[in-house]
Amino acid sequence: MKFPKLFKPFLVSAALAIGLAGCSAQKTTTEEEASGPQKAENQEVNIYTARHYDADDEIYKKFTEETGIKVNVVKGEAEELIERLKREGESTEADLFITVDGGVLANAKQNGIFQPVSSEIINENVPENLRDAENNWIGMGTRARIIAYSKERVSPEELSTYEDLTNEKWKGRLLVRSSTSLYNQSLLASFIELNGEEQAEQWAQGIVNNFARQPDGGDRDQAKAIAAGTGDIAIMNTYYVGLLANSEDPEEVKVADSIGVFFPNQETNGTHVNISGIGLTKHSKNKENATKLIEYITGVEAQEFLAANNFEFPVNPQAQKPELLESWGEFKMQELNFDTLGEHNKKAIEIFNKTGWK
């Protein structure tokens, strides 16, 4: 099913290549300014973002239309943007840093690139468990790491927990992407925090033993491999299922129709959830405008747009979810301080290397 867009599509009117150490980043500026009493002359907000989604760009455009505040965007990889912020220091133009993954947000915080955001509106929009304890970063969307399964070859009654995926009954049937994936690193980091290093290593080894094939491709590729019969179950993020289900490619829609979504560990410590977040940079030159943009992104309208177009779960509890997300039902989330994902990242990578999860 196609969900209606809340905001009109737009074209980015200017693009400027920006040199970035070890990578190529792109800077775009929303050019159309709002008219009338809301227009804010010569005001702007500058974003460094590791999220490369059209839905985000549309939200920035709508924000400019409503406030007159220009949104300038530099896109790149998270680690490179963090290093750039550290290198630029007080001279940086960036007001906001946006990225996916709680571990990356924790790393950015540890590197001292954030300052706390003070806003009652943000505090009302986003529950405490989806914000940094000192509001150094604010959640803007979440995605659950679930078990996708073949509706033809697997009954949901056969599924239960992440731990059960190491059971011999899944040998040669399990699909998952590479250990270089931040999502897998944070999943294993959560197990280290909850169960200890020894059990986390045993779990990783059990997953490797049950591989249907060596990890290949992204989450959508795991779903396609289920549809092709390469494996029967996969560990993947929910929002990829939404993107497949709403693809313009009918073959991808068929893939989505062929798989079911299962939220593991509902009787224990809950399904692992990762987060995208926004942080106000330490040396922001446009702090007020940046705060307004965070308030806007976490507001109901923008949250519902992200959910309907990028299929992430909204962080604002007042925002309605689209039909597909509603169809999956409510689920128990893993309760975890997102900072711990960054703290255990190095150990998670060590375990992956030790167990041969490549």
Rank of each mutant, 00 (worst) to 15 (best):
F3K: 06
L11C: 05
A14L: 10
A14G: 11
L16H: 06
I18P: 03
A21C: 03
T29N: 08
E31S: 12
A34F: 07
K39Y: 15
K39R: 14
E44G: 00
V45A: 00
N46R: 00
Y53L: 13
A55W: 06
E58D: 07
Y60C: 03
G68M: 03
K70R: 04
V73F: 01
V74M: 05
E77H: 12
I82Y: 04
I82F: 04
E83I: 02
L85P: 04
L85G: 02
E90G: 10
E90S: 15
S91L: 15
A94G: 01
F97V: 02
D101R: 11
G102M: 09
G103Q: 03
V104Y: 09
Q110D: 08
N111W: 05
F114N: 07
V117G: 01
S118F: 14
S118I: 13
N125V: 05
P127C: 05
P127H: 04
E128W: 05
R131S: 13
W137D: 02
Y149Q: 09
K151Y: 14
K151R: 15
V154Q: 09
L165I: 12
W170D: 07
W170Y: 14
L174W: 14
S181F: 10
N184C: 01
L188G: 01
S190T: 10
L194D: 10
I207P: 11
V208R: 11
N209W: 09
N209S: 13
N209A: 15
N210A: 08
Q214G: 06
G217S: 14
R220L: 08
R220H: 11
D221H: 15
A223L: 15
A225P: 03
I226V: 08
A227T: 02
T230W: 04
T238A: 04
Y239N: 15
V241S: 09
V241G: 08
G242S: 09
D249K: 08
P250V: 09
P250N: 08
S258D: 10
F263A: 04
Q266E: 05
N269R: 09
V273N: 07
S276R: 00
G277K: 00
S284D: 02
K285Y: 12
K287M: 03
K287G: 03
I294H: 10
E295Q: 02
T298W: 10
A302S: 14
E304G: 06
A308T: 08
A308K: 05
A308W: 01
N310F: 15
N310Q: 14
V315T: 11
Q318M: 09
Q318A: 13
Q320A: 15
E323P: 06
L324N: 08
L325D: 11
S327W: 11
G329R: 09
E330R: 14
D339H: 01
D339I: 03
T340P: 00
L341W: 01
E343F: 00
I351M: 00
N353L: 08
N353S: 12
T355Y: 03
